[in-house]
Design a protein around this nucleic acid. Structure first.
Lengths: 237, 237
DNA sequence: CGGCGTTATTGATCTAGGTCATCTGAAGTA
DNA sequence: TACTTCAGATGACCTAGATCAATAACGCCG
Protein backbone atom coordinates (compact mmCIF):
# COMPACT_ATOMS: atom_id res chain seq x y z
CA UNK A 1 0.00 0.00 0.00
CA UNK A 2 1.27 3.44 -0.96
CA UNK A 3 2.23 5.71 1.95
CA UNK A 4 0.37 8.58 0.31
CA UNK A 5 -2.93 6.72 0.17
CA UNK A 6 -5.34 8.42 2.59
CA UNK A 7 -6.73 5.12 3.83
CA UNK A 8 -3.28 3.63 4.37
CA UNK A 9 -3.15 1.58 7.55
CA UNK A 10 0.60 1.15 7.77
CA UNK A 11 1.64 4.62 8.84
CA UNK A 12 2.57 5.35 12.47
CA UNK A 13 1.50 8.30 14.63
CA UNK A 14 4.76 10.17 14.10
CA UNK A 15 4.24 10.30 10.34
CA UNK A 16 0.45 10.67 10.29
CA UNK A 17 -0.76 13.88 8.69
CA UNK A 18 -3.41 14.15 11.41
CA UNK A 19 -1.13 13.96 14.43
CA UNK A 20 -1.21 17.71 15.05
CA UNK A 21 -4.95 17.35 15.60
CA UNK A 22 -5.30 14.25 17.71
CA UNK A 23 -2.09 14.20 19.76
CA UNK A 24 -1.00 16.61 22.47
CA UNK A 25 1.49 19.12 21.08
CA UNK A 26 3.93 18.62 23.93
CA UNK A 27 4.65 14.95 23.25
CA UNK A 28 8.31 13.92 22.89
CA UNK A 29 9.51 11.63 20.08
CA UNK A 30 10.04 8.84 22.57
CA UNK A 31 6.56 9.29 23.98
CA UNK A 32 5.03 9.25 20.52
CA UNK A 33 6.54 5.86 19.87
CA UNK A 34 5.15 4.62 23.22
CA UNK A 35 1.74 5.76 22.06
CA UNK A 36 2.36 4.22 18.66
CA UNK A 37 2.73 0.83 20.26
CA UNK A 38 -0.76 0.87 21.72
CA UNK A 39 -2.55 2.43 18.75
CA UNK A 40 -4.08 -0.14 16.44
CA UNK A 41 -4.61 0.97 12.87
CA UNK A 42 -7.67 -0.80 11.52
CA UNK A 43 -8.28 -1.67 7.91
CA UNK A 44 -10.44 0.71 5.85
CA UNK A 45 -14.16 0.65 6.53
CA UNK A 46 -16.82 0.54 3.85
CA UNK A 47 -19.56 3.14 3.80
CA UNK A 48 -22.16 2.13 6.43
CA UNK A 49 -19.62 -0.06 8.21
CA UNK A 50 -19.96 0.06 12.00
CA UNK A 51 -17.00 0.79 14.26
CA UNK A 52 -19.04 -0.21 17.31
CA UNK A 53 -22.66 -0.64 18.34
CA UNK A 54 -24.43 0.90 21.31
CA UNK A 55 -24.40 -1.51 24.21
CA UNK A 56 -21.15 -3.23 23.27
CA UNK A 57 -18.48 -3.38 25.93
CA UNK A 58 -16.32 -0.27 25.92
CA UNK A 59 -12.72 -1.08 25.09
CA UNK A 60 -11.24 1.72 23.03
CA UNK A 61 -11.57 5.25 21.86
CA UNK A 62 -11.02 5.95 18.16
CA UNK A 63 -9.43 8.61 15.97
CA UNK A 64 -10.61 9.28 12.42
CA UNK A 65 -7.69 8.89 10.03
CA UNK A 66 -9.62 9.43 6.79
CA UNK A 67 -13.22 9.66 5.67
CA UNK A 68 -15.94 10.51 8.15
CA UNK A 69 -17.92 8.88 10.90
CA UNK A 70 -21.21 9.61 12.62
CA UNK A 71 -22.30 8.76 16.15
CA UNK A 72 -25.92 8.05 16.93
CA UNK A 73 -28.18 6.57 19.53
CA UNK A 74 -31.56 4.92 19.12
CA UNK A 75 -34.36 6.17 21.36
CA UNK A 76 -36.70 3.76 23.18
CA UNK A 77 -39.25 4.52 20.47
CA UNK A 78 -36.74 3.29 17.93
CA UNK A 79 -35.86 6.56 16.25
CA UNK A 80 -32.28 7.43 15.47
CA UNK A 81 -30.64 10.46 17.09
CA UNK A 82 -27.41 11.64 15.49
CA UNK A 83 -25.12 12.89 18.26
CA UNK A 84 -22.04 13.86 16.30
CA UNK A 85 -20.09 13.94 13.06
CA UNK A 86 -16.40 13.04 13.23
CA UNK A 87 -13.92 14.26 10.63
CA UNK A 88 -10.25 13.25 10.18
CA UNK A 89 -8.11 14.04 13.22
CA UNK A 90 -11.05 13.92 15.61
CA UNK A 91 -11.48 11.49 18.51
CA UNK A 92 -14.73 9.68 19.30
CA UNK A 93 -16.01 6.92 21.56
CA UNK A 94 -15.49 8.68 24.89
CA UNK A 95 -19.17 8.33 25.79
CA UNK A 96 -18.43 4.67 26.57
CA UNK A 97 -16.17 5.35 29.54
CA UNK A 98 -18.95 6.17 31.98
CA UNK A 99 -20.78 2.86 31.93
CA UNK A 100 -18.15 0.55 30.41
CA UNK A 101 -20.44 0.19 27.42
CA UNK A 102 -20.84 2.44 24.41
CA UNK A 103 -24.02 4.48 24.58
CA UNK A 104 -23.70 5.50 20.93
CA UNK A 105 -23.17 3.51 17.79
CA UNK A 106 -20.52 4.72 15.35
CA UNK A 107 -20.79 4.21 11.60
CA UNK A 108 -18.71 5.27 8.60
CA UNK A 109 -20.57 7.82 6.46
CA UNK A 110 -18.25 7.03 3.56
CA UNK A 111 -15.12 4.90 3.06
CA UNK A 112 -13.04 5.65 6.15
CA UNK A 113 -10.11 4.51 8.24
CA UNK A 114 -9.89 4.83 12.01
CA UNK A 115 -7.20 4.27 14.64
CA UNK A 116 -8.21 2.31 17.70
CA UNK A 117 -6.72 3.29 21.06
CA UNK A 118 -7.38 0.68 23.76
CA UNK A 119 -8.50 2.64 26.77
CA UNK A 120 -6.85 0.57 29.48
CA UNK A 121 -3.48 1.07 27.80
CA UNK A 122 -4.25 4.72 27.37
CA UNK A 123 -4.98 5.03 31.08
CA UNK A 124 -1.69 3.43 32.02
CA UNK A 125 0.22 5.56 29.57
CA UNK A 126 -1.52 8.66 30.93
CA UNK A 127 0.01 7.96 34.29
CA UNK A 128 3.50 7.78 32.74
CA UNK A 129 2.91 10.82 30.51
CA UNK A 130 1.03 13.53 32.45
CA UNK A 131 0.62 15.72 29.36
CA UNK A 132 -1.30 12.87 27.77
CA UNK A 133 -3.60 12.67 30.78
CA UNK A 134 -4.17 16.39 30.55
CA UNK A 135 -4.82 16.09 26.82
CA UNK A 136 -7.54 13.51 27.32
CA UNK A 137 -9.18 15.47 30.10
CA UNK A 138 -9.22 18.38 27.66
CA UNK A 139 -10.62 16.32 24.81
CA UNK A 140 -13.46 15.12 27.00
CA UNK A 141 -14.10 18.59 28.32
CA UNK A 142 -14.22 19.86 24.74
CA UNK A 143 -16.79 17.22 23.93
CA UNK A 144 -18.83 18.51 26.88
CA UNK A 145 -18.67 22.13 25.72
CA UNK A 146 -19.52 21.06 22.15
CA UNK A 147 -22.55 19.15 23.34
CA UNK A 148 -23.58 22.14 25.41
CA UNK A 149 -23.42 24.49 22.44
CA UNK A 150 -25.57 22.03 20.53
CA UNK A 151 -28.04 22.10 23.43
CA UNK A 152 -28.15 25.88 23.22
CA UNK A 153 -28.52 25.73 19.44
CA UNK A 154 -31.44 23.33 19.71
CA UNK A 155 -33.24 25.16 22.46
CA UNK A 156 -32.77 28.77 21.32
CA UNK A 157 -32.15 28.95 17.58
CA UNK A 158 -34.22 28.85 14.41
CA UNK A 159 -33.79 26.40 11.54
CA UNK A 160 -31.70 28.90 9.55
CA UNK A 161 -29.43 29.61 12.52
CA UNK A 162 -28.91 25.91 13.14
CA UNK A 163 -28.00 25.09 9.55
CA UNK A 164 -25.73 28.13 9.27
CA UNK A 165 -23.97 27.11 12.49
CA UNK A 166 -23.36 23.56 11.28
CA UNK A 167 -21.95 24.79 7.96
CA UNK A 168 -19.59 27.14 9.79
CA UNK A 169 -18.52 24.36 12.13
CA UNK A 170 -17.62 22.11 9.20
CA UNK A 171 -15.90 25.01 7.48
CA UNK A 172 -13.75 25.63 10.57
CA UNK A 173 -12.89 21.99 10.99
CA UNK A 174 -11.81 21.87 7.34
CA UNK A 175 -9.58 24.88 7.89
CA UNK A 176 -7.93 23.10 10.81
CA UNK A 177 -7.04 20.35 8.36
CA UNK A 178 -5.66 22.93 5.89
CA UNK A 179 -8.55 22.35 3.51
CA UNK A 180 -10.78 25.00 2.00
CA UNK A 181 -13.19 26.62 4.43
CA UNK A 182 -15.50 27.76 1.64
CA UNK A 183 -15.64 24.86 -0.80
CA UNK A 184 -16.20 21.35 0.49
CA UNK A 185 -18.25 18.23 0.20
CA UNK A 186 -20.71 17.44 2.98
CA UNK A 187 -20.11 13.86 4.05
CA UNK A 188 -23.61 13.45 5.49
CA UNK A 189 -27.10 13.28 4.01
CA UNK A 190 -29.81 15.89 4.44
CA UNK A 191 -31.55 13.42 6.73
CA UNK A 192 -28.49 13.23 9.00
CA UNK A 193 -28.20 17.01 9.08
CA UNK A 194 -31.86 17.34 9.99
CA UNK A 195 -31.65 14.62 12.58
CA UNK A 196 -28.57 16.18 14.20
CA UNK A 197 -30.12 19.66 14.22
CA UNK A 198 -33.59 18.60 15.37
CA UNK A 199 -35.20 19.46 12.01
CA UNK A 200 -36.94 17.52 9.25
CA UNK A 201 -35.29 16.83 5.88
CA UNK A 202 -37.78 19.16 4.23
CA UNK A 203 -36.82 22.06 6.46
CA UNK A 204 -33.12 21.50 5.82
CA UNK A 205 -33.80 21.43 2.12
CA UNK A 206 -35.82 24.64 2.26
CA UNK A 207 -33.12 26.42 4.26
CA UNK A 208 -30.50 25.41 1.67
CA UNK A 209 -32.88 26.72 -0.97
CA UNK A 210 -33.30 30.07 0.79
CA UNK A 211 -29.54 30.43 1.34
CA UNK A 212 -29.00 29.85 -2.38
CA UNK A 213 -31.64 32.41 -3.34
CA UNK A 214 -29.85 34.94 -1.13
CA UNK A 215 -26.49 34.12 -2.77
CA UNK A 216 -25.03 32.96 0.52
CA UNK A 217 -24.41 29.43 -0.70
CA UNK A 218 -23.98 27.51 -3.87
CA UNK A 219 -25.35 24.03 -3.33
CA UNK A 220 -24.94 21.15 -5.73
CA UNK A 221 -26.16 18.04 -3.96
CA UNK A 222 -23.45 17.54 -1.32
CA UNK A 223 -20.97 19.99 -2.79
CA UNK A 224 -21.11 23.29 -0.94
CA UNK A 225 -19.59 26.62 -1.79
CA UNK A 226 -19.95 29.42 0.74
CA UNK A 227 -20.28 32.62 -1.32
CA UNK A 228 -20.84 35.03 1.56
CA UNK A 229 -19.31 33.76 4.78
CA UNK A 230 -19.91 37.03 6.64
CA UNK A 231 -23.61 36.87 6.05
CA UNK A 232 -23.56 33.21 7.03
CA UNK A 233 -21.86 34.24 10.29
CA UNK A 234 -24.49 36.89 10.84
CA UNK A 235 -27.23 34.36 10.35
CA UNK A 236 -25.57 31.89 12.71
CA UNK A 237 -24.81 34.59 15.26
CA UNK B 1 -20.66 25.02 63.98
CA UNK B 2 -22.62 21.85 64.62
CA UNK B 3 -21.41 18.77 62.73
CA UNK B 4 -25.01 17.95 61.84
CA UNK B 5 -25.60 21.29 60.12
CA UNK B 6 -25.98 20.62 56.40
CA UNK B 7 -23.97 23.69 55.45
CA UNK B 8 -21.17 22.86 57.86
CA UNK B 9 -17.79 23.59 56.32
CA UNK B 10 -15.63 21.81 58.87
CA UNK B 11 -16.27 18.19 57.97
CA UNK B 12 -13.74 16.17 55.96
CA UNK B 13 -14.39 13.86 52.99
CA UNK B 14 -14.22 10.72 55.14
CA UNK B 15 -17.14 11.88 57.28
CA UNK B 16 -19.17 13.65 54.60
CA UNK B 17 -22.60 12.18 54.02
CA UNK B 18 -22.12 12.72 50.28
CA UNK B 19 -18.86 10.84 49.85
CA UNK B 20 -20.52 7.75 48.42
CA UNK B 21 -21.72 9.92 45.55
CA UNK B 22 -18.74 12.05 44.68
CA UNK B 23 -15.77 9.83 45.50
CA UNK B 24 -14.71 6.58 43.83
CA UNK B 25 -15.82 3.59 45.87
CA UNK B 26 -12.44 1.93 45.75
CA UNK B 27 -10.58 4.64 47.65
CA UNK B 28 -8.53 3.55 50.69
CA UNK B 29 -8.66 5.42 53.98
CA UNK B 30 -5.14 6.71 53.37
CA UNK B 31 -6.08 7.89 49.90
CA UNK B 32 -9.17 9.65 51.19
CA UNK B 33 -7.03 11.69 53.55
CA UNK B 34 -4.72 12.58 50.64
CA UNK B 35 -7.75 13.84 48.76
CA UNK B 36 -8.96 15.58 51.90
CA UNK B 37 -5.83 17.67 51.94
CA UNK B 38 -6.50 19.19 48.54
CA UNK B 39 -10.25 19.68 48.90
CA UNK B 40 -11.15 23.14 50.07
CA UNK B 41 -14.45 23.47 51.83
CA UNK B 42 -15.87 26.89 51.08
CA UNK B 43 -18.19 28.85 53.32
CA UNK B 44 -21.93 28.66 52.61
CA UNK B 45 -23.18 30.58 49.60
CA UNK B 46 -26.22 32.83 49.61
CA UNK B 47 -28.98 32.27 47.09
CA UNK B 48 -27.84 33.81 43.77
CA UNK B 49 -24.21 33.72 44.87
CA UNK B 50 -21.84 32.84 42.04
CA UNK B 51 -19.28 30.05 42.38
CA UNK B 52 -17.57 31.19 39.17
CA UNK B 53 -18.35 33.26 36.09
CA UNK B 54 -18.00 32.22 32.46
CA UNK B 55 -14.63 33.37 31.12
CA UNK B 56 -12.83 33.22 34.46
CA UNK B 57 -9.65 31.18 34.54
CA UNK B 58 -10.33 27.54 35.24
CA UNK B 59 -8.74 26.39 38.48
CA UNK B 60 -11.01 23.89 40.18
CA UNK B 61 -13.91 21.58 39.84
CA UNK B 62 -16.57 21.65 42.55
CA UNK B 63 -18.79 19.25 44.44
CA UNK B 64 -22.15 20.26 45.86
CA UNK B 65 -22.22 19.61 49.59
CA UNK B 66 -25.68 21.05 50.31
CA UNK B 67 -28.26 23.13 48.53
CA UNK B 68 -28.32 23.30 44.75
CA UNK B 69 -26.46 24.99 41.94
CA UNK B 70 -27.23 25.76 38.32
CA UNK B 71 -24.84 26.12 35.39
CA UNK B 72 -25.63 28.46 32.55
CA UNK B 73 -24.08 30.24 29.60
CA UNK B 74 -25.07 33.50 27.98
CA UNK B 75 -25.54 33.47 24.20
CA UNK B 76 -24.06 36.21 21.99
CA UNK B 77 -27.57 37.68 21.87
CA UNK B 78 -27.44 37.96 25.63
CA UNK B 79 -29.98 35.28 26.52
CA UNK B 80 -29.29 32.83 29.30
CA UNK B 81 -29.08 29.10 28.56
CA UNK B 82 -29.29 26.80 31.57
CA UNK B 83 -26.98 23.84 30.95
CA UNK B 84 -27.40 21.89 34.17
CA UNK B 85 -28.76 21.59 37.67
CA UNK B 86 -26.42 20.24 40.34
CA UNK B 87 -27.69 18.56 43.51
CA UNK B 88 -25.74 17.48 46.59
CA UNK B 89 -23.04 14.90 45.83
CA UNK B 90 -22.71 16.00 42.20
CA UNK B 91 -19.58 17.43 40.57
CA UNK B 92 -19.58 20.44 38.26
CA UNK B 93 -17.12 22.76 36.56
CA UNK B 94 -15.56 20.22 34.21
CA UNK B 95 -16.47 22.28 31.16
CA UNK B 96 -13.58 24.60 32.07
CA UNK B 97 -10.83 22.03 31.45
CA UNK B 98 -10.93 22.28 27.65
CA UNK B 99 -10.03 25.95 27.30
CA UNK B 100 -8.55 26.72 30.71
CA UNK B 101 -11.50 29.03 31.26
CA UNK B 102 -14.99 28.23 32.43
CA UNK B 103 -17.49 28.31 29.59
CA UNK B 104 -20.43 28.27 32.02
CA UNK B 105 -21.24 30.37 35.03
CA UNK B 106 -22.33 28.57 38.20
CA UNK B 107 -24.76 30.09 40.68
CA UNK B 108 -26.45 28.87 43.87
CA UNK B 109 -30.19 28.41 43.38
CA UNK B 110 -30.66 28.52 47.15
CA UNK B 111 -28.36 28.62 50.18
CA UNK B 112 -25.66 26.10 49.35
CA UNK B 113 -22.21 24.85 50.26
CA UNK B 114 -19.66 23.52 47.78
CA UNK B 115 -16.29 21.82 48.01
CA UNK B 116 -13.57 23.15 45.74
CA UNK B 117 -11.09 20.69 44.24
CA UNK B 118 -8.11 22.43 42.63
CA UNK B 119 -7.64 20.70 39.32
CA UNK B 120 -3.85 20.76 39.16
CA UNK B 121 -3.70 18.95 42.49
CA UNK B 122 -6.34 16.57 41.31
CA UNK B 123 -4.30 15.75 38.21
CA UNK B 124 -1.23 15.00 40.28
CA UNK B 125 -3.18 12.90 42.70
CA UNK B 126 -4.78 11.03 39.78
CA UNK B 127 -1.33 9.89 38.75
CA UNK B 128 -0.68 8.52 42.24
CA UNK B 129 -4.16 6.98 42.57
CA UNK B 130 -5.19 5.37 39.27
CA UNK B 131 -8.70 4.64 40.51
CA UNK B 132 -9.15 8.39 40.98
CA UNK B 133 -8.06 9.02 37.40
CA UNK B 134 -10.52 6.43 36.20
CA UNK B 135 -13.23 7.98 38.37
CA UNK B 136 -12.76 11.40 36.81
CA UNK B 137 -12.69 10.01 33.29
CA UNK B 138 -15.98 8.35 34.17
CA UNK B 139 -17.47 11.50 35.66
CA UNK B 140 -16.66 13.44 32.52
CA UNK B 141 -17.96 10.70 30.30
CA UNK B 142 -21.17 10.68 32.31
CA UNK B 143 -21.49 14.39 31.76
CA UNK B 144 -21.15 13.72 28.02
CA UNK B 145 -23.84 11.05 27.99
CA UNK B 146 -26.12 13.28 30.09
CA UNK B 147 -25.69 16.16 27.68
CA UNK B 148 -26.39 13.82 24.80
CA UNK B 149 -29.65 12.63 26.32
CA UNK B 150 -30.63 16.25 26.76
CA UNK B 151 -29.84 16.80 23.07
CA UNK B 152 -32.10 13.90 22.17
CA UNK B 153 -34.81 15.19 24.51
CA UNK B 154 -34.69 18.64 22.92
CA UNK B 155 -34.65 17.45 19.36
CA UNK B 156 -37.19 14.63 19.53
CA UNK B 157 -39.56 15.10 22.44
CA UNK B 158 -42.70 17.10 23.19
CA UNK B 159 -43.12 19.55 26.04
CA UNK B 160 -44.85 16.94 28.20
CA UNK B 161 -42.13 14.37 27.57
CA UNK B 162 -39.44 16.87 28.47
CA UNK B 163 -41.04 17.94 31.73
CA UNK B 164 -41.82 14.34 32.70
CA UNK B 165 -38.20 13.36 32.00
CA UNK B 166 -36.82 16.17 34.14
CA UNK B 167 -39.10 15.27 37.05
CA UNK B 168 -38.01 11.63 36.84
CA UNK B 169 -34.37 12.67 36.72
CA UNK B 170 -34.75 14.72 39.89
CA UNK B 171 -36.69 11.91 41.49
CA UNK B 172 -33.88 9.45 40.73
CA UNK B 173 -31.21 11.77 41.98
CA UNK B 174 -33.15 12.21 45.22
CA UNK B 175 -33.36 8.46 45.63
CA UNK B 176 -29.57 8.23 45.25
CA UNK B 177 -29.38 10.57 48.22
CA UNK B 178 -31.81 8.39 50.20
CA UNK B 179 -34.52 11.02 49.95
CA UNK B 180 -38.05 10.53 48.74
CA UNK B 181 -38.40 9.95 45.02
CA UNK B 182 -42.04 11.00 45.02
CA UNK B 183 -42.21 14.02 47.33
CA UNK B 184 -39.66 16.77 46.95
CA UNK B 185 -39.12 20.47 46.53
CA UNK B 186 -37.92 21.71 43.15
CA UNK B 187 -34.95 23.98 43.76
CA UNK B 188 -35.38 25.84 40.49
CA UNK B 189 -37.95 28.28 39.15
CA UNK B 190 -40.36 27.58 36.30
CA UNK B 191 -38.26 29.91 34.20
CA UNK B 192 -35.15 27.79 34.82
CA UNK B 193 -37.03 24.60 33.99
CA UNK B 194 -38.30 26.12 30.75
CA UNK B 195 -34.93 27.49 29.84
CA UNK B 196 -33.23 24.14 30.47
CA UNK B 197 -35.85 22.23 28.48
CA UNK B 198 -36.12 24.68 25.60
CA UNK B 199 -39.65 25.74 26.54
CA UNK B 200 -41.32 28.93 27.73
CA UNK B 201 -42.48 29.45 31.31
CA UNK B 202 -46.07 29.38 30.10
CA UNK B 203 -45.67 25.97 28.51
CA UNK B 204 -44.05 24.55 31.65
CA UNK B 205 -46.91 25.92 33.72
CA UNK B 206 -49.51 24.43 31.40
CA UNK B 207 -47.82 21.03 31.43
CA UNK B 208 -47.83 21.05 35.26
CA UNK B 209 -51.50 22.01 35.05
CA UNK B 210 -52.33 19.12 32.73
CA UNK B 211 -50.36 16.63 34.84
CA UNK B 212 -52.37 17.75 37.89
CA UNK B 213 -55.68 17.40 36.06
CA UNK B 214 -54.69 13.83 35.15
CA UNK B 215 -53.79 13.08 38.79
CA UNK B 216 -50.18 12.35 37.86
CA UNK B 217 -48.78 15.13 40.01
CA UNK B 218 -49.71 17.24 42.95
CA UNK B 219 -48.08 20.62 42.53
CA UNK B 220 -47.96 23.32 45.17
CA UNK B 221 -45.62 25.98 43.92
CA UNK B 222 -42.24 24.25 44.14
CA UNK B 223 -43.43 21.32 46.21
CA UNK B 224 -44.03 18.27 44.02
CA UNK B 225 -45.73 15.02 44.81
CA UNK B 226 -45.68 12.33 42.14
CA UNK B 227 -49.00 10.50 42.47
CA UNK B 228 -48.60 8.14 39.52
CA UNK B 229 -44.97 7.49 38.73
CA UNK B 230 -45.75 4.74 36.22
CA UNK B 231 -47.82 7.05 34.09
CA UNK B 232 -45.10 9.68 34.40
CA UNK B 233 -42.63 7.10 33.12
CA UNK B 234 -44.94 6.28 30.24
CA UNK B 235 -45.18 9.93 29.34
CA UNK B 236 -41.42 10.37 29.51
CA UNK B 237 -40.80 7.14 27.64
C1' DC C 1 -50.58 46.11 58.03
C1' DG C 2 -50.40 47.74 53.21
C1' DG C 3 -47.81 48.43 48.96
C1' DC C 4 -44.79 46.39 45.37
C1' DG C 5 -41.97 43.51 42.82
C1' DT C 6 -41.43 38.87 41.45
C1' DT C 7 -43.24 34.27 40.07
C1' DA C 8 -46.85 31.49 38.51
C1' DT C 9 -51.24 30.58 36.15
C1' DT C 10 -54.51 30.93 32.46
C1' DG C 11 -56.61 32.50 28.13
C1' DA C 12 -56.49 34.17 23.12
C1' DT C 13 -53.99 34.40 19.08
C1' DC C 14 -50.09 33.64 15.85
C1' DT C 15 -46.33 31.27 13.41
C1' DA C 16 -42.18 28.32 12.48
C1' DG C 17 -41.61 24.26 11.25
C1' DG C 18 -43.83 19.62 10.91
C1' DT C 19 -46.61 16.54 8.01
C1' DC C 20 -48.13 14.75 3.82
C1' DA C 21 -48.01 14.41 -0.94
C1' DT C 22 -45.94 15.02 -5.43
C1' DC C 23 -42.11 15.46 -8.52
C1' DT C 24 -37.26 15.30 -10.20
C1' DG C 25 -33.06 13.35 -11.10
C1' DA C 26 -29.01 10.55 -10.21
C1' DA C 27 -27.28 5.87 -9.45
C1' DG C 28 -27.48 1.32 -9.54
C1' DT C 29 -28.92 -3.15 -11.99
C1' DA C 30 -30.71 -6.61 -14.77
C1' DT D 1 -31.98 0.68 -22.50
C1' DA D 2 -35.58 0.47 -19.46
C1' DC D 3 -36.75 -0.35 -14.46
C1' DT D 4 -36.24 0.54 -9.79
C1' DT D 5 -34.68 2.91 -5.85
C1' DC D 6 -33.53 6.42 -3.09
C1' DA D 7 -32.02 11.31 -2.00
C1' DG D 8 -33.49 15.66 -2.55
C1' DA D 9 -36.65 19.63 -3.67
C1' DT D 10 -41.01 21.94 -3.52
C1' DG D 11 -45.89 23.01 -2.56
C1' DA D 12 -50.30 22.93 0.52
C1' DC D 13 -51.85 22.48 4.83
C1' DC D 14 -51.82 21.85 10.00
C1' DT D 15 -50.47 21.86 14.85
C1' DA D 16 -47.47 22.40 19.10
C1' DG D 17 -45.82 25.65 21.37
C1' DA D 18 -44.50 30.73 21.22
C1' DT D 19 -46.13 35.26 22.03
C1' DC D 20 -48.89 38.67 24.13
C1' DA D 21 -51.82 40.06 27.71
C1' DA D 22 -54.31 39.85 31.95
C1' DT D 23 -54.71 38.17 36.60
C1' DA D 24 -53.56 35.92 40.83
C1' DA D 25 -50.62 34.82 44.74
C1' DC D 26 -46.75 35.06 47.05
C1' DG D 27 -42.94 36.94 49.83
C1' DC D 28 -40.50 41.14 51.40
C1' DC D 29 -39.77 45.51 53.50
C1' DG D 30 -40.90 49.91 55.49
Amino acid sequence: MDAKCPHNTEVNCGDCRMNALCLPLALQTKEISQLDEIVQRGRPLQKEGHIYHAGEEFKSVFAVRSGSVKSYTVTNEGQEQVTGFHLPGEIFGMDGIAHNHYTNSAIAMETAAVCEIPFSNLQELSIAIPSLQRHFFQLMSKEITNDQSLITLLSKNTAEERVATLLLSISNRNLRRKLSGVRFRLPMSRADIGNYLGLTVETVSRVFGRFQKQDILLVDKKEIEILNIDQLRNLAN
